[in-house]
């Protein structure tokens, strides 16, 4: 595998974005708005089982943020490089395998997803005394970033224009952020919609990020996330192998 140049390209661009304050600000702004509006505003004084509302919301915001950043970055990068700048041709004409391209893109997506979640973790430590990390939470965020980076590869490869990427985001990613346990427990969702909610991948991240250890439900969510990750990753490889202009 020669994934490193694909990864390095993304990292050079990422490093450059980091040096612009606007990037960190835009990564933080939406979760911070949610945090203040729902956590410190509407939710103040609410309790959800053993959590106060802010304690419930913070892990969900980390999951949401890692999903948004890993998915959006990878899907946009592939879409723009394939359709507009044509830089993607350079990867296809190079003697590297499809798996190397996917791995390089996904690894960069994981890094960006985990970075964005880390910013929320810092905010969490600053705003909530009881906020703490454990290995299940960290594993869930890494796997979540892997899963949505791989989905980003798939969407980035199948979209026919940049507007298409926004369409997938509006119909899939944004609703998933709201209805899969980020802002309120999935137990509150009407029973008729529950099967649909359990099919969505972010639901399982939201279950895992609030666990201290892996019980039965935790293992089940972990397996679902792994299954989605492998499925999206393999689909990404297949799409790149079949690439033809």
């Amino acid at each position: 595998m020669n994934w490193y140049p694909v990864f390095l390209r993304e990292m050079i661009i990422f490093k450059r974005r980091l040096l612009r304050l606007g990037y960190i600000f835009s990564t933080l702004i939406i979760p911070i708005i949610y945090l203040f509006a729902f956590g410190l505003g509407i939710g103040k004084g609410f309790r959800i089982s053993e959590y106060d509302y802010l304690g419930f919301l913070l892990p969900g915001l980390c999951a949401l943020s890692s999903m948004n950043n890993s998915y959006t970055w990878v899907a946009n990068s592939l879409n723009l490089n394939r359709i507009y700048s044509k830089t993607f041709q350079m990867f296809i004409q190079s003697p590297i395998s499809a798996i190397s391209i996917v791995f390089g893109e996904v690894l960069s997506g994981i890094l960006k997803g985990v970075f964005a979640a880390s910013l929320i973790v810092i905010v969490g430590f600053l705003t909530h005394e009881g906020f703490e990390l454990n290995w299940v939470f960290i594993l869930a965020l890494i796997l979540n970033s892997f899963m949505f980076s791989s989905l980003g590869v798939v969407i980035g490869m199948i979209t026919k224009s940049h507007e298409d990427t926004a369409t997938y985001s509006n119909f899939l990613i944004i609703p998933m952020g709201f209805f899969t346990g980020t802002f309120f427990p999935i137990e509150k969702i009407p029973i008729i919609f529950k099967p649909l909610i359990y099919v969505l991948p972010l639901t399982h991240t939201n279950i895992l990020v609030r666990k201290d250890s892996l019980d039965f439900m935790g293992w089940l969510s972990l397996l679902v996330m792994l299954a989605y990750s492998v499925l999206f990753f393999l689909l990404g490889i297949r799409l790149i192998k079949g690439y033809s202009e």
């Binding site: 020669n2 490193y4 140049p5 694909v6 390095l8 390209r9 050079i12 661009i13 450059r16 700048s85 830089t87 350079m90 990867f91 190079s94 003697p95 590297i96």
Partner: peptide, 17 residues
């Protein structure tokens, strides 16, 4: 690659090959 410099364009292409 418009997001990269002249040197970086050559570097990434060379590494890919």
């Amino acid at each position: 690659d418009r997001e990269l410099t002249v040197y970086e364009n050559l570097l990434i292409y060379g590494m890919l090959h």
